[in-house]
Each structure stands twice: as C-alpha cells, then as structure tokens.
Design a protein around this nucleic acid. Structure first.
Lengths: 338, 338
DNA sequence: CCTGGCACTCTTCCCATCCGAGTGCCAGCA
DNA sequence: TGCTGGCACTCGGATGGGAAGAGTGCCAGG
C-alpha cells in the first residue's frame, strides 16, 4: 500500500517525535535522517500519510505527529524489540536475585520496570489459577476455631479463619490435615473441588459439619484469591507526561488506583507474547492517551501472571518492549528457582 | 500576645483561603465574616499578623495567605477537630466491617481515608513490634526443608522457608512445634528471643543444628518484618493540588514511592494523639509544601501502627483531623474484634 | 517522479497598555 | 487609644496588536 520510503518517513516521524516531544516538520526530518530526498518530497509523502490517517497536524502549519494508527503501524511493521545490553541484563538479574520472598520479588520487579522504562510499572502477583497447592495447614486456635493456611507452589500464602459449628479435637484435625494434603498437595487449584468432594464422608458424623465448613472455606479461598492482586510503581514518572498536565494525569492516576481496571487491562492482553495497546485501543477511557505494554511471565513455560508498563502513546516502543520482555523473563527464572 | 480579634482575623483568613484557594483581602474578609470592624481595621491587623510571620503576601497588592506558622497557630489554638456526623460514622463502620482479612482491612481503610479527606491516604500495616505471637507453625515440605509460619494476634501471617542442615523427622518437628508454641504463644515479640534461647538444649544432638536454624529464622522474621509495610491510596487527589502543578506533585509522588520516607514520616509522629506536621515541619524536602496528619491506631488501648493523610498545607484541618481520628478509631475496633 | 521556489496560514512571542484588587498611610472621630 | 473613611500607589493579570518563524500546499520545471 504505502511505498517503502513513506514507511521510512513514518518511522522517522515517530522516532523524532518520541525524542523531541514536538511536532516534526519536513525540513527537520530531511536534516536528521538521510532519506535522500528533499523536504518537498517528504511533504508529499506526509500529505499521503495524513490522508491515510497515520499522522496528523495539531494545527495548520505545525509539524506532524503520529496518530494511534501510526504508532500501531510502527510497532507492527517498522520497529523491532530492542534487546537489553549485556550489562543491563546482569543488572536486572542481580537486582532480582536479592529478593527474599514473593512480595519482595514483586516489589523489586515493579521498581526495576519503572526505572528501566521510566514509566509506570504494573506487576500482577502470580496467579493462583494455574498454581498448584503445595501444602494446606490447619491450626487449632481455640476448640471451635481453626486457622486455614494455604501455601502455593509460587510461594504465596493465604490464610483464613474458620469458625467451626462444633468443637474439633486435635486428633480429628490432624486426621483432616493428613487426608486433605494427601489429596490436594501438588494438584492444580482447578482440580481441588472435585478432589475433596467426598472427603467429609470419611469422618465421624459429629465432625462432618466442621470438615465441610473447613473445605468450603478452602474452596472460597481458591476462588476469592483469584481476584488477583497487583502492585504498581513509578507513578512519579507520570509527571514527565506533557505540558497539558492535570487533564492527562488525573484519569491515569484514577485508573491506576482501580485495581479492577488494571487487572482487566492486563487480562485483555494476549496470553502469549507481548501485547501493545495504543491509545484508544485501551477500553478504559482514562487511558486513551496512554499505551500499555504487557506480557505474561511465569515459572516454567506457562504464564502465571502478567506485568507491563503504562506510558504515554508517545513512548519509546522498542526500548520499552525490550525492557518488559527482559524483566518478565528474569522474573520467570527467579520464580522457577524458588 | 495577639489580641482576640487578630486571632479571629487569622482564623478567617485560613478558612477563606482553604475554601477559595485564593489570597484573601481585607474587604472580602469583612464581607464574609462578621467581625464588626471595617476593612481598614482589618488591614492593620493583617499588617501585624504579617509582622509576626503568620501570614504573607504572594505579591504586593494581592491578598494574604497563611504561612506554615499561621497554620500551626490555627491548628493549635483556633481550630477544633470537627467530629464526623452520625451517618458518616455509620458509613465508615459499614465499609470497614465488610473486610475479610488483614490485607482487606488495610486496603479498605486506605480507600476510605482517601475518599473522606479527598487527599492521599497512608496506612501502615499493624506492626509486629508490639504484637504478640498467636501461633508458630512448622511444616515439613521435604526431609530437610521446613516452612515456618508465624501468626500474630493482629491477624498477620509471615512465612519463611528454612533449609535444614540435616534431615528432620516428623516426630522431632512435632516436638519442636509443641515446645516452641508452649513458650512463645501469647508472648510479645520482644520477649521471644530470650524465651527460646535454651530451647535447642532439650533436643538430641543431631537435631540441634536444625532447631537452631529454625529458631534463628524465626528471630530474623521478627526483626525483618519490623520493616513495616504500608499502603497508600488516593494519589489522584494530588491533581487538585494547585496550578503550579508538576513542580509540586512530582516530589510528592516520589516521596510516596519511598516507603522508607513515609515510614519515617509516620514514625516521627507522636505516639499518642494526633500529630499534624505542616509544610516545612516535615523533614523530607519534597513534602515541604504538604501537611501530614497522622495518628496511631490499634486494637485495645495500645497503638500498633499509624495511619494518616498527606495533603496540601492549604487543607481543611478540622475536617481532615476528624476523619483521620474517626477512621483510626474504627479500624482499631475492627482489629480488636478479629 | 523529484525538486526548488513562493505565497499563505497559523501559532507564538513580545511589548505596551489598561484595569482593578489590595495595600499603606493619614487625618479625623469616638 | 483605637477605629474609620479616604486616597494615592503598586503590582499582577488581562487585552490587543504587531512581528517573527515554522511549516505547509501547490506549481512549474527538470
């Protein structure tokens, strides 16, 4: 459709605009990029690109800026992913290696991403959906009060208090603990419900009520905690957004506070590979002038959660994508190790 | 020192400025407040207040605005704490009552505070320092691998993985679990070290190494987790800050990301009663144009952590203080119940 | 199909002006 | 002594008119 040179022009426009944050004109383009043609020619190309909707002018007689569609083409066809340099990789690895527990891994990842991309970083906690149960612990806190602790293979720990309908002896508790673990340890969350379905039947009549209560609390925990948590960081980078500040930043901050919105945002991203949502491609209105670069990460081959960054549509896509991909890869490694 | 009327004038200036966000002049003051004197008189009072450093003019021939010192006087002498209304109280209670676990309590508290005050809310997780141990659980995950789970009376759960120097049988583990709990359950964190000091001596020689390892991990957890965590929310409210935006908001966002700074900020606040730090009273430079209202909260009589809000020095102090106090009180109740 | 040239369009910047809010001070009055 | 009305003064912010500059579109010629 578009000639090779016109694509080059678009690429040059995107690069310059991302660098300078100012509309770029035909003359400046020919000076900074060796396109081998005159400004007048570039003007013609620009007119064509504008007709096609890839670029736009803020006002007559200002330079052009890329539209969302322009960025889209840039990302899809014109730009690669800029790989991290060796030292950068090592720095990432070192930084993440220092983490002591899951919270710390997530916290460090957020900081790292925010620093590398100089944008807002969002990291979802490893999801329970695809996790397996490592261990279920039951503690008797009072005769009719049990604490349920669920430990997952990703290192996450969830606890719930259970009020039992009847007192429950230590022996019964130990029994339940043993049977429960022999059934669910190492199994996937999704499989747990049917695995424990007939468990109460093996108990004395008087204990069945309690067993059922404990089990249903367990199932609840599995489901409830699927409302995944996430951590964000680097919001101070929002101040680099632009000059028309308060109007832009406000809805973004609001979106960032709404975990639901963010989770949806990450969730929409494709399951494998990197996803880039540009401007209006984001369903949430407040993020219409931002782009979201996200990718799944996980121990082993499978993605257990996602992470990404939120920044202005005018962002360095190759660099950002490179950083996001690299961080995801190393976080995956860390999780696999622990 | 200052006559009664001059204090009234200062109060009126603070109130008007907080309301309008614009420097307030003598004429407007006499119109909006019934001071019973003419603008000329007020002008004299203002000149005096300015000499004393309570108010200042942004430029000659603009109105006056309060200085940090002026706000200080206002808070100390001129303003009470505005109590929440009945419906407000009920709403707070309802909102917090819905929480399912500690994380949820904190999350809800943050949202609530941010909404009530329309400012940035900061809530520290209930501290371990003053907490007592409810239960210590030890789980054998592999022959030489133990998971340590610490449960506190505030409902907090911490877990650590322990790699043992030698395999450790289930029987020994149960033994250790029992002895450990009989010693530390219900005791304060600070007392734990000496309570477990001679514990290894009761074990077989071959197990002592493991016991020591487990114990030192436990002690580490107690200390490490004193690096308290906190949650913030309502950052979108920063956009209401002012017109000179990016300059003001940036350092604040940066401060909010530095948990260390925030913890220090809350930590500095007095242990009992509400603390208000105004503008330059805050040690951290980025917060020089903000005020921090904080208060301790806790189950029972004792404060286990702090919470507060960060907002512009030009804030509604009575209202903010009322909201902070009310929320702290109800959070304390919730914690006591669970 | 590319190029140089040219007229045209806007935005931005700068400056001069004006207006008004607010002050400080003073002389007079209770 | 303390309050008041009056008045001159000071700035900041808004208004408006150029002038400058960047960038465009179009056209005729190579």
């Amino acid at each position: 459709m578009l000639s090779e040179r016109r694509l080059q022009v678009l690429r040059a426009i995107v690069q310059d605009y991302v660098g300078t944050e100012e509309p770029v004109g035909s003359k400046a383009l020919t000076e900074r990029h060796s396109l081998g043609v005159s400004p007048a020619t570039v003007r013609n190309d620009m007119a064509a690109l504008e007709d096609e909707g890839y670029i736009a002018q803020p006002h007559t007689s200002a330079g052009r800026i890329p539209t969302d569609k322009g960025y889209r083409l840039f990302v899809d066809k014109l730009a690669g992913v800029k790989p991290m340099t060796g030292p950068e990789r090592r720095a990432i690895q070192n930084f993440l290696d220092g983490a002591v527990d899951l919270d710390d891994v997530v916290a460090r990842t957020v900081r790292l991403l925010a620093q590398l991309t100089r944008q807002v970083a969002v990291v979802q906690y490893p999801s329970l959906t695809r996790s397996t149960v490592r261990h279920v612990e039951l503690l008797s806190l009072a005769p009719a009060r049990v604490m349920l602790v669920l430990i997952t293979d990703t290192g996450r720990v969830e606890q719930r208090m259970v009020d039992c309908p009847a007192p429950f002896g230590e022996a019964s508790l130990a029994d339940l603990r043993a049977r429960l673990n022999s059934r669910v340890a190492g199994r996937r969350f999704a499989d747990v419900p049917q695995l424990v379905e007939d468990l109460p039947e093996g108990f004395d009549l008087e204990d069945r009520g309690t067993v059922s209560t404990v089990l249903s609390t367990l199932l609840e925990t599995l489901v409830e905690e699927n409302e995944e948590r996430l951590m964000i960081g680097g919001t101070a980078n929002l101040t680099r957004f632009g000059h028309d500040f308060p109007l832009t930043i406000r809805p973004v901050l609001e979106a960032l506070e709404e975990q639901v919105v963010l989770l949806k945002l990450l969730g929409e991203a494709g399951d494998s590979g990197m996803t880039v949502r540009i401007g209006h491609e984001n369903a949430y209105e407040g993020l219409n002038s931002t782009s979201v670069v996200s990718v799944g990460y996980g121990s082993g081959g499978e993605a257990v959660a996602k992470l990404g960054v939120v920044g202005p549509t005018r962002m360095d896509y190759p660099g950002t994508m490179g950083a996001v991909r690299a961080v995801a890869r190393y976080v995956g490694q860390i999780l696999a190790e622990s």
